[in-house]
Write a protein that binds this DNA or RNA. Structure first.
Lengths: 141, 141
DNA sequence: CTAGGGCTTCCACTGCACTGGAAGGTCAAG
DNA sequence: CTTGACCTTCCAGTGCAGTGGAAGCCCTAG
């Protein structure tokens, strides 16, 4: 099939499919005499894999690596497990970071209620954000 | 003070400070006859604000906007509160997404234990990631 | 024969917050 | 006088996953 039909069947754009080929996650297909790309069912399966792996949070570089391992040393099980583990750890870290940030924002937000705009220090841009900064007379250096 | 000292006092690089000036979060300072930037204490305070706002998850564009509001219409309280609220909502969304993704990865990870590499389907790149795909004989279209 | 839709390549751009490097000016110490 | 640290500007690149557009070929229908 041509690239347009593959795009329709996978829900991607033709642009994205060509980009995936250049990124090494989709093998270069056969060409028709006209130069048009000619895909088989394998391309549909491959793009399904790429989508599934992306949904698991893997980058195109990681997906490409899994594919390479698969092609050279057979089943990439161990590689994939390691990858998933490190992604899980990564996600844990990021979730913890965002949760802490969320708490910080909440703290700022609620502190805003206790501040009187009248006490707003013109030397500071916004005391809601920077309430821990008390403007002091410039130290005589 | 010159840019190098400001950098030392704020823990930023001179590159970053010039970048902040071009990004509109730090006003252009006075210049010495030599052309060197000449900063006062206000620059230290401003950069502290930028850091605090960044720590609250605000982008440079948002920080610039707060500064602009502050300069034109006075205290940017309402603007800042709105911004913080929408950031909190944003964070909630992203935390939920990452948590769901974390659960997915865990599910894949644990499913890997139940799969026999011997049943590894060569038509699929990796069944750990794509276990829901059962390769079927290519439909005779 | 022409219009159109689909395809080809290549290059540039998006957003974000920087970072690197080149070419050259300034200033104080030795 | 020279060395070296520090400063200036401007341009380009980083990472990620695409997206946009231009110029031009292929193919079919009217």
């Amino acid at each position: 099939m041509r690239i347009g039909q593959l795009a329709a069947r996978t829900g991607l754009t033709t642009k994205t499919i060509r980009f995936y080929e250049s990124a090494g996650v989709l093998p270069a297909p056969a060409r028709r005499p006209s130069g048009y790309r000619d895909y088989d069912e394998g391309a549909v399966a491959r793009l399904a894999f790429v989508k599934a792996a992306q949904a698991a949070g893997l980058s195109l570089a990681e997906i490409r690596e899994i594919i390479t391992v698969r092609a050279s040393t057979g089943a990439p099980c161990q590689h994939v497990l390691t990858l998933l583990d490190s992604h899980a750890a990564d996600l844990d870290r990021r979730i913890a970071e965002l949760t802490a940030l969320r708490a910080d924002v909440e703290r700022l937000r609620s502190r805003a209620g206790t501040l009187d705009p009248a006490t707003c220090d013109p030397a500071v841009v916004c005391q809601v954000i920077q309430a821990d900064v008390v403007t002091q007379p410039v130290p005589t250096t």
